[in-house]
Protein backbone atom coordinates (compact mmCIF):
# COMPACT_ATOMS: atom_id res chain seq x y z
CA UNK A 1 0.00 0.00 0.00
CA UNK A 2 2.52 2.56 1.16
CA UNK A 3 4.98 1.47 -1.50
CA UNK A 4 2.38 1.82 -4.20
CA UNK A 5 1.52 5.28 -2.92
CA UNK A 6 5.20 6.15 -3.03
CA UNK A 7 5.43 4.91 -6.60
CA UNK A 8 2.34 6.86 -7.65
CA UNK A 9 3.76 9.96 -6.03
CA UNK A 10 7.09 9.61 -7.83
CA UNK A 11 5.28 9.05 -11.13
CA UNK A 12 3.20 12.16 -10.57
CA UNK A 13 6.31 14.25 -9.95
CA UNK A 14 7.63 13.00 -13.27
CA UNK A 15 4.44 14.07 -15.04
CA UNK A 16 4.12 17.42 -13.29
CA UNK A 17 7.77 18.47 -13.42
CA UNK A 18 9.05 16.82 -16.59
CA UNK A 19 11.95 18.82 -18.01
CA UNK A 20 12.43 20.88 -14.85
CA UNK A 21 15.21 19.05 -13.06
CA UNK A 22 15.66 21.29 -9.96
CA UNK A 23 11.98 21.18 -9.04
CA UNK A 24 11.74 17.47 -9.89
CA UNK A 25 14.67 16.73 -7.56
CA UNK A 26 13.21 18.90 -4.81
CA UNK A 27 9.80 17.26 -5.11
CA UNK A 28 11.29 13.78 -4.94
CA UNK A 29 13.49 14.69 -1.99
CA UNK A 30 10.40 16.00 -0.22
CA UNK A 31 8.48 12.81 -1.01
CA UNK A 32 11.36 10.69 0.27
CA UNK A 33 11.62 12.69 3.50
CA UNK A 34 7.91 12.42 4.09
CA UNK A 35 7.93 8.68 3.69
CA UNK A 36 11.09 8.25 5.81
CA UNK A 37 9.56 10.26 8.62
CA UNK A 38 6.57 7.95 8.74
CA UNK A 39 8.58 4.77 8.26
CA UNK A 40 8.14 3.79 11.90
CA UNK A 41 4.33 3.75 11.80
CA UNK A 42 3.07 0.26 12.55
CA UNK A 43 1.11 -1.67 9.98
CA UNK A 44 -2.64 -1.32 10.33
CA UNK A 45 -2.54 1.79 12.50
CA UNK A 46 -4.95 4.62 11.62
CA UNK A 47 -2.04 7.07 11.33
CA UNK A 48 -0.53 4.90 8.62
CA UNK A 49 -3.74 4.80 6.60
CA UNK A 50 -4.00 8.54 7.01
CA UNK A 51 -0.43 9.10 5.78
CA UNK A 52 -0.89 6.83 2.78
CA UNK A 53 -4.12 8.60 1.89
CA UNK A 54 -2.33 11.93 2.15
CA UNK A 55 0.40 10.70 -0.21
CA UNK A 56 -2.14 9.48 -2.76
CA UNK A 57 -3.94 12.82 -2.63
CA UNK A 58 -0.71 14.72 -3.15
CA UNK A 59 0.02 12.48 -6.14
CA UNK A 60 -3.46 13.19 -7.48
CA UNK A 61 -3.07 16.95 -7.16
CA UNK A 62 0.37 16.91 -8.76
CA UNK A 63 -0.91 14.90 -11.68
CA UNK A 64 -4.21 16.65 -12.33
CA UNK A 65 -3.96 20.15 -10.99
CA UNK A 66 -0.35 21.30 -11.24
CA UNK A 67 0.74 22.86 -14.52
CA UNK A 68 4.12 24.41 -15.04
CA UNK A 69 4.57 27.56 -17.05
CA UNK A 70 7.59 29.11 -18.67
CA UNK A 71 8.02 32.79 -19.39
CA UNK A 72 8.40 33.17 -23.13
CA UNK A 73 8.62 36.92 -23.29
CA UNK A 74 6.97 40.05 -22.03
CA UNK A 75 3.63 39.05 -20.47
CA UNK A 76 3.70 35.71 -22.28
CA UNK A 77 3.78 32.40 -20.48
CA UNK A 78 3.72 28.98 -22.09
CA UNK A 79 1.87 26.42 -19.98
CA UNK A 80 2.66 22.74 -20.12
CA UNK A 81 -0.82 21.29 -20.11
CA UNK A 82 -0.70 17.53 -20.54
CA UNK A 83 -3.19 14.72 -20.99
CA UNK A 84 -3.64 14.23 -17.23
CA UNK A 85 -4.44 17.86 -16.50
CA UNK A 86 -7.91 18.43 -15.18
CA UNK A 87 -9.79 20.72 -17.46
CA UNK A 88 -12.96 22.47 -16.60
CA UNK A 89 -14.73 25.72 -15.93
CA UNK A 90 -16.92 27.17 -13.21
CA UNK A 91 -19.67 24.66 -13.94
CA UNK A 92 -17.60 21.51 -14.25
CA UNK A 93 -15.87 22.04 -10.90
CA UNK A 94 -19.28 21.46 -9.35
CA UNK A 95 -19.72 18.11 -11.08
CA UNK A 96 -20.93 15.40 -8.71
CA UNK A 97 -19.15 12.22 -7.63
CA UNK A 98 -15.73 13.74 -8.12
CA UNK A 99 -16.02 13.48 -11.90
CA UNK A 100 -13.37 15.45 -13.68
CA UNK A 101 -12.75 16.70 -17.18
CA UNK A 102 -9.46 15.77 -18.79
CA UNK A 103 -7.84 16.77 -22.01
CA UNK A 104 -8.66 14.52 -24.93
CA UNK A 105 -6.97 16.30 -27.78
CA UNK A 106 -9.47 19.15 -27.83
CA UNK A 107 -8.71 22.66 -26.83
CA UNK A 108 -10.39 24.44 -23.97
CA UNK A 109 -12.48 26.41 -26.46
CA UNK A 110 -14.31 23.50 -28.07
CA UNK A 111 -14.97 21.69 -24.80
Amino acid sequence: MALQAYRHLLRSTRIAFAGDAPVLHAARAEARNGFRQNAALSAGSPELAEAVKHAEEVAQILRHNVVQGKKEGEDLYKLKIHEHTERGDNDTVKMPNGKSVVIDGKTCADR
Binding site: L3, R7, L10, R11, R32, R36, A39
Partner: peptide, 10 residues
Protein backbone atom coordinates in the same frame (compact mmCIF):
# COMPACT_ATOMS: atom_id res chain seq x y z
CA UNK B 1 15.12 -0.94 1.93
CA UNK B 2 11.68 -1.11 0.34
CA UNK B 3 11.50 2.62 -0.45
CA UNK B 4 14.92 2.46 -2.12
CA UNK B 5 13.69 -0.49 -4.15
CA UNK B 6 10.75 1.56 -5.41
CA UNK B 7 13.18 4.29 -6.42
CA UNK B 8 15.43 1.81 -8.21
CA UNK B 9 12.52 0.32 -10.14
CA UNK B 10 11.40 3.84 -11.03
Amino acid sequence: DSLDTVEVVM
